[in-house]
């Protein structure tokens, strides 16, 4: 019933395997595109746990992504942390920040939740601008010169190496991907689905719905922070623009396009959108108009998204 089941398990593992194999086949351009897509798809997968599984639409995830991003960036730049230590700091700080943000914003519901998450995220963005003597604001900073290779005895992890970048991205994506598969099939996931459908009834069954929503928020936010941390390590750039509202809207768009509430939707949506924007930005400056029209079209004619529609039509076993 709500078990992972062998078919979905094989399906998900083969997607990861295919992404792993792809690095040996793809030409350099697509190799680097996929590196970017996988980090962002991890971010979208985390977002999906909140939107797709729990039915909570946040416009504040840029703040959580950036918590991971800046945790890595600032500890490496100012404190001389090693990448692994910086990553650990990022995980802990994004967990703490998401718990705090969730605890406050989940006191509201519906559209108010969305407005309030957006306001707080904007505070975070403005803070990164206000302290631009530390964060370098919009211009940002680069950490590649401080990312020393990690010596693993018989081989080295060199963050400048594109194979390392690719596999780091694959790693963070796989964690987010498998975690969302696990959650969707777990007793916890069933409670989240119940809260999404009928929170009143879930409460009357004896579930503390506030606490479950907070768990979903923290899980989603920590995955966002983890993605931000890996983004910093892989792309070496840390700047305010990643904390801006556009970066909260992005995972919303990717998740809706791919299919909210499906495990593979965020990957499909991210991949499609990153390629579409890459293609369109080669002949128009204002690629955002594509984002805008895509959002309107999806909501008008395609509310289940790509994977959601496929699941409904053909593959009902798809998680």
């Amino acid at each position: 019933m709500r078990e992972i089941g062998s078919l979905p398990a094989i399906f998900h593992l083969s997607i990861i395997a295919a992404l792993f194999v792809a690095q040996f086949i793809l030409p350099p351009f697509h190799h680097s595109m996929l590196t970017r897509i996988m980090v962002l798809a991890a971010y979208a997968s985390g977002y999906n746990i909140l939107l797709g599984y729990t039915g909570l639409m946040s416009l504040g995830h840029a703040m959580l992504f950036s918590t991971g991003l800046y945790s890595v960036g600032l500890t490496i730049l100012y404190l001389g942390f090693e990448p692994l230590a910086a990553f650990t700091v990022a995980l802990i700080s994004s967990l703490v920040i998401s718990l705090l943000l969730g605890a406050i914003t989940l006191r509201t519901s519906g559209v108010f939740f969305l407005i309030v998450t957006m306001i707080f995220s904007q505070v975070f963005y403005l803070t990164t601008l206000y302290f631009n003597n530390i964060t370098y604001g919009d211009q940002g900073f680069v950490i590649s010169q401080y990312l020393h290779p990690i010596n693993m005895g018989f081989f080295q992890i060199d963050f400048a190496d594109r194979t390392v970048k690719y596999n780091l991205s694959l790693l963070v994506f796989s964690v987010a991907f498998l975690l969302s598969l696990y959650v969707s099939r777990s007793p916890l996931g069933l409670v989240l689905a119940a809260i999404k459908e009928n929170p009143d009834r879930a409460e009357m069954l004896g579930y503390n719905t506030y606490r479950y929503k907070l768990i979903a928020f923290a899980l989603s936010g920590t995955i966002a922070g983890m993605s931000g941390a890996v983004y910093a390590l892989v792309f070496s750039y840390i700047g305010s623009s990643l904390a801006f509202i556009h970066n909260s809207i992005n995972p919303l768009l990717w998740t809706l396009l791919g299919g909210a509430g499906t495990t593979t939707g965020p990957l499909v949506g991210t991949m499609l959108m990153v390629y579409v924007i890459d293609v369109t930005s080669s002949f128009t400056e204002s690629y955002l108009v594509v984002v805008g029209i895509a959002l309107i079209l999806i909501i008008l004619g395609f509310p289940k998204g790509i994977v959601g529609s496929i699941r409904k039509r053909w593959l009902t076993w798809l998680p």
Partner: peptide
């Protein structure tokens, strides 16, 4: 309510870019 938010975010981008 939620579809409206998504649609008006789309509208936001469209108006801005035009």
């Amino acid at each position: 309510p939620e579809s409206t938010i998504v649609a008006t975010i789309g509208l936001l981008y469209a108006i801005q870019q035009v």
